Simulated assay, not measured.
Amino acid sequence: MALPALPKVSHDTASAPPRIVVLGSLNMDLVLRVPHAPEAGETLQGHSIHTVPGGKGGNQAVSCARQGAAVSLLGRVGADDYGQALRAALTRDGIDHGGVQTDAQEPTGVALVMVDDAAQNRIVVIAGANARVEVDAHDPELAQRLQHAAFLVAQFETPLAQVVTAAALAHRIGCKVMLNPSPAQALPAQLWPLLDTLVVNEVEARLLSGRVADTPAEAAKAACALRARGVARVVVTLGAGGAVAADTQGCRHHPALAVTAVDTTAAGDTFLGALAVTLADGQSFDAAVRHGIRAAALCVTQVGAQPSIPDRDAVLRSALPPDWIPL
């Protein structure tokens, strides 16, 4: 069946907050604070345990909302207490979750997040309802959401086929697609030409480009290889090493801010949300990367996923990162 004709729209960010649609996972995180990761057979006395709203889709939606965007989230939760708690958290951030489905068979996704005293995390995810997200390319409500959005933001914690369906619809309508291919996996050929902005870490950059991306110079080469696939803008995030941005103007290294990290959970999601909203606001690519770095630096100084994501005012009050360096 042919898709209905849909007009392309312009996004007037001067009169209203930018609109962003996020397709992604919703998890309840069980966060364990531990002195170190236990070895095989070791029983470890932990510091604490907390339940915290998370999931890459939920985190990125919250980051976008706290940076001032009007956000619609597409996802799936179970008909259980965790699902209700996640919806309540989205409501508190003003996020439209009318596109979040409720699964009567599968439970809400859960992530076990172990954070050690060095602020490094180890995460095990049980997908649950996330694995059954469905995107209907003929849904008029979805088309309406995308018509008025500056970006569709997606990751890979929901089925890949559904990400492709949503990206194809967004691209056809004129809504730009920003992809964070995490967990890392190869992209199907039909997805590449649909992408406007690709945000990857060192592992994802290496998998997709076939090049090592552990230093700014290496990340720049990987980013150029990814841009050659037709992507307009690529960001390779390097954690404490900052980020490399690549577009038609070439490659630049944006250094990170020096902070004392206590928990790196959701740092990448925080960066991506801040990046998306700043671009949707009409600011330059470099300004958007710098804003993302500032937001992520604040995130890692706090514990937990969504509780650690800063709002726009906090980011604007924070220190500026060093100037970017051409590569």
Rank of each mutant, 00 (worst) to 15 (best):
V177E: 04
L327R: 09
G273A: 10
A149L: 10
V315C: 01
P7H: 04
L275A: 05
A297Y: 09
A143H: 12
G78T: 14
A119P: 08
E204G: 07
A189P: 11
P322N: 03
P322H: 02
D247Y: 05
A61H: 00
V110N: 08
H138C: 10
L86F: 14
V115L: 09
G273P: 02
S284T: 15
R227N: 02
T265V: 14
R229L: 08
L169S: 04
K176E: 13
V62L: 02
D247T: 09
E204K: 06
V259S: 08
R252C: 10
A111R: 00
L44W: 11
T301E: 12
A288S: 04
C251K: 06
A274E: 03
T248N: 05
G83K: 03
V212H: 01
R122H: 14
L207S: 00
C64F: 06
V244M: 06
E202A: 06
A261S: 15
N180E: 12
A37F: 15
A89T: 07
D196T: 12
R317I: 10
A184R: 11
D323W: 12
A14Y: 06
A223M: 08
G282Y: 09
G273V: 02
A220K: 01
G55E: 09
R312G: 07
A319Y: 07
V177P: 02
W324K: 01
A70Y: 00
R211I: 02
L152S: 11
A217K: 13
A280L: 13
E106V: 05
A65F: 08
I123V: 12
N201I: 01
K176R: 14
P107A: 09
G210D: 00
L112A: 12
D247E: 00
G292S: 08
P216D: 02
D269L: 09
R211P: 00
N130G: 12
G24W: 01
F285G: 05
A88H: 07
H11L: 14
L73Y: 04
R252S: 14
A287W: 03
L160T: 15
G128N: 08
N180F: 15
T260Y: 07
G98I: 08
Q306S: 06
A143Q: 08
V163E: 03
A222C: 10
G239T: 03
H47K: 10
R145S: 02
I173A: 01
V212E: 07
A276E: 07
A40C: 12
D311G: 12
A40T: 15
V259D: 01
P4S: 15
A189R: 12
A205I: 09
Q84A: 14
V231N: 00
P7C: 11
P307G: 07
G57Q: 02
E106M: 13
L207D: 04
A89I: 02
A131Q: 02
L279Q: 05
G75I: 00
G174P: 07
A137P: 02
V22D: 00
G109P: 01
Q147P: 08
V124P: 10
M114K: 01
I173G: 15
M114G: 07
R206T: 03
L152Q: 07
D29F: 06
L257R: 02
L275Q: 11
S10E: 15
I309E: 04
Q84V: 10
L257H: 13
A296I: 09
V262N: 13
P181F: 10
V231L: 07
A205L: 05
V163M: 00
N27H: 12
L44K: 14
L146H: 00
A266M: 10
A189S: 10
